[in-house]
Each structure stands twice: as structure tokens, then as C-alpha cells.
């Protein structure tokens, strides 16, 4: 059986280093399988976060040969195995241990986004009527598995650390899903401009490239949200009308 070498980052918040592990590989294996073999046989205390092993839960995000990916969906057959495969934690988040990062910031951000607020029900039994086409428009955003790879790759967070001023691509997808929800009545546009900092995004589309769910984050979520901000706050005609007649 063939073997491959994995150069795995081992460490803590205080620092760490890469360590090489060789393990047997077989057809169809993914990176997470190799990590599990190494954990079971060579390094029982190797820290890795995972759950579903099928690309649904978004737990096993890491950087594989420098690329933000899900370990469970990265097949070894797609990687060059003549040199060590590097596996390291997402670099935009603080390390907890080895491959595990502290992603709690994302959960705090979500709490700050205005919740879904539906229009009154359309029917007596408290239900609504919607067309499939209306639903289809937002399904793309609701596919998000919260793996936070888009947050990891976004330079506003990764390099500029603007976590306090910018919610990141994941939450623009979330907000787009709410803003374009056929039933929602809330207005999140003022926050988008201010607290959520949509203006910091300069559309490099790095997030779109790494999304394992192929959500067109930049084109379908962020740009339309930017347009809403522009329409609401920077439309000169609207501004003039607002001034003259107190309309918003």
C-alpha cells in the first residue's frame, strides 16, 4: 500500500510548528481520513474538529497545501503526494490547539444581526403563500453550512483584522438571505452600511472561490447588498426629495 506524508501544524495559542506524519493511503481517501488514521495510531491527542464527514456540517475547515478547504471533501487524489501535504488551521482565527481554531466570534456576530421578522400570515391557520420562484431566489444563501472558510480567506478579516467593523462574507450571505426573504419586513440596510461595514469589501471574490457550497457570495449576496446601501443612502435624487419634503 502507498504511503503519504502529512505536515500537520501542532501547537497552541502560544505557538507551534509543523510535524511530519507518514500514513498509509488507499483509493478514495480524503484528508480527514488520513488525519483520523494519524490520530488513532500516532497522535491520540491531535486536535481536529469534525462531524458529518459529508460536507454538510462545515466543522472540519482547515488550510490544505495553503488552500482553505473542508478536510472531509478534499480527496487525496486531487493533491500532489510526492511531497508532504501541509495541513494547518484556519489562519484568520485564533488557534485553540493544532487544527482547531476559536470561531466563537462568528457566533457573536450573528446575534447582532436583526432577526427574521415576517409579515402577518396570509391564511387563517397562520401559514403563508409563496411561489417557488420567490423561494428559489434565497435558497442559495440558505445552503450555507457555516464552515467560515469565506471568513478565513477574506483579507479584511485575515490581514486587516477589522472584526469590530466588518461582519465578513458569511454574514452578508446571511443578511442577503433575510433581506431577500419573501416574508421578511425588517430593514437591515442602515446597519449594513454602519455596523456591518459592507463598504470594506472590495469585491476580490476570494470568498466565492473557496465556498464549498458554491454560493456566489460576491455576485449574488454582497453586490446586491452594496446596491441597496447605495440606493438608500447615496441616491442624490432621493436625498433632495428627503430634504425638501422630509421623505426617506
Amino acid at each position: 500500500m502507498a504511503t503519504a506524508t502529512f505536515r500537520i501544524w501542532r501547537g497552541s495559542p502560544q505557538g507551534g510548528r509543523f510535524e511530519d506524519y507518514s500514513t498509509e493511503i488507499s483509493e478514495g481517501m480524503v484528508v480527514l481520513d488520513a488525519i483520523h488514521d494519524i490520530q488513532a495510531r500516532q497522535a491520540n491527542d491531535l486536535a481536529v474538529r469534525w462531524n458529518c464527514k459529508a460536507g454538510r456540517c462545515g466543522s472540519c475547515s482547515a488550510e490544505i497545501d495553503g488552500q482553505p478547504r473542508l478536510m472531509c471533501m478534499t480527496r487525496l487524489s486531487t493533491l500532489p503526494l510526492d511531497r508532504p501535504v501541509t495541513v494547518e488551521p484556519m489562519r484568520a482565527f485564533p488557534v485553540v490547539k493544532d487544527l482547531v481554531t476559536d470561531v466563537s466570534w462568528n457566533f457573536r456576530v450573528k446575534k447582532q444581526i436583526k432577526a427574521f421578522n415576517p409579515r402577518p400570515p396570509d391564511a387563517q391557520d397562520g401559514s403563508w403563500r409563496m411561489l417557488q420562484e420567490e423561494v428559489d431566489r434565497v435558497q442559495e444563501f440558505r445552503k450555507c453550512i457555516e464552515c467560515f472558510l469565506c471568513q478565513d480567506v477574506c483579507h479584511v478579516l485575515r490581514e486587516h483584522h477589522l472584526h469590530e467593523q466588518f461582519v465578513g462574507p458569511r454574514f452578508f450571505v446571511h443578511i442577503a438571505g433575510l433581506e431577500m426573504h419573501p416574508l421578511d419586513t425588517e430593514d437591515r440596510v442602515p446597519e449594513l452600511r454602519q455596523a456591518h461595514g459592507v463598504g470594506y469589501c472590495n469585491i476580490t471574490k476570494c470568498c466565492t472561490k473557496v465556498c464549498p457550497e458554491s454560493i456566489r457570495i460576491t455576485d449574488n449576496a454582497i453586490i446586491p447588498l452594496k446596491e441597496r446601501v447605495v440606493d438608500e443612502f447615496y441616491d442624490p435624487l432621493k436625498k433632495l426629495f428627503a430634504k425638501l419634503w422630509g421623505l426617506v
Binding site: 427574521f116 401559514s127 403563500r129
Partner: peptide
């Protein structure tokens, strides 16, 4: 199911706009 819809879940629809 209706509670979920009231909290924002979006189910696939029938032709007349109800939950499929």
C-alpha cells in the same frame, strides 16, 4: 412545521404557494 415557517424556514412550494 408552521412554527418553523414563522421563524423563517423556507420550504419548497406547491403550485398554489403552500408547503410542498
Amino acid at each position: 412545521v408552521r412554527d418553523l415557517e414563522a421563524w423563517g424556514a423556507l420550504f419548497d412550494r406547491t403550485r398554489d404557494g403552500r408547503i410542498l
